[in-house]
Nucleic acid binder design. Structure first.
Lengths: 108, 108
DNA sequence: CGAATGGTTCAACTATATTCGAACCATGGC
DNA sequence: GCCATGGTTCGAATATAGTTGAACCATTCG
């Protein structure tokens, strides 16, 4: 492969920092399964394949759906790495727009 | 009427402090209309009749519904006073269970 | 290349939330 | 007592969200 330019494969939509909406973020976090994912990711970048999502036998389409809600609300970043995907918390963006929210939610 | 004991009229259910659930609170706050109410009440105790609820022409049953969601999540206290009702924020309870949450949500 | 792995998207179904009118209840004032 | 005011509750209709299998796409590994 040419090492010059990355082909940017399967990039999903992520809202810009200034477009984050508080109620959308709160809604994304208001589901126990999703909040659990956020807690997990908060511990450090995680591979989506390793995300337990509460129940061990959750279909991948369901898992994908929850990731989408979190991603579109601007809570998580979801990037392709290898043949899988890596999840990361949009810590700086959330902190910039809703300072303190993440800490409160993760600690409560 | 005997002035000795209050008849406790129309008392609605309010969850105890220890029974508050984070995801339920987040859900209650994730609706723009409800968040607006909370902002209003945060400015001081308010009479329900004076709550604009975004739209000026919201049916009372709809308004009552949103109040119920906020009340059952433990966000608001809803008490009968005179022939109306007074809303107040459950500031101390929320602060005790989810310290910082209220401030973050109200300031963001 | 071909198979296996990991994940998104689509469409259909189910479940839950929202909206609102109507009926009902309590208080206050006349 | 009676009426007006303010608000809850119920039930039905609508809208939105969650769940899932199937089809499809990319990447890795042999």
């Amino acid at each position: 492969m040419a090492s010059s330019d990355a082909p940017a494969p399967l990039e999903l939509f992520h809202p810009d920092r200034e477009d984050l909406v508080l109620t959308d973020v709160l809604f994304a976090l208001s589901d126990p399964a999703r909040l659990e994912i956020v807690r997990q990711v908060a511990g450090g970048t995680i591979e989506m394949a390793n995300c337990h999502l509460q129940n061990p036998s959750v279909p991948k389409s369901t898992k994908s759906h929850h990731m989408k809600v979190l991603r579109e609300a601007g809570v998580l970043r979801n990037e392709p790495v290898g043949r899988g995907r890596v999840l990361s918390l949009r810590h700086d963006d959330l902190e910039a727009r809703f300072p303190g929210l993440l800490r409160v939610v993760l600690e409560s």
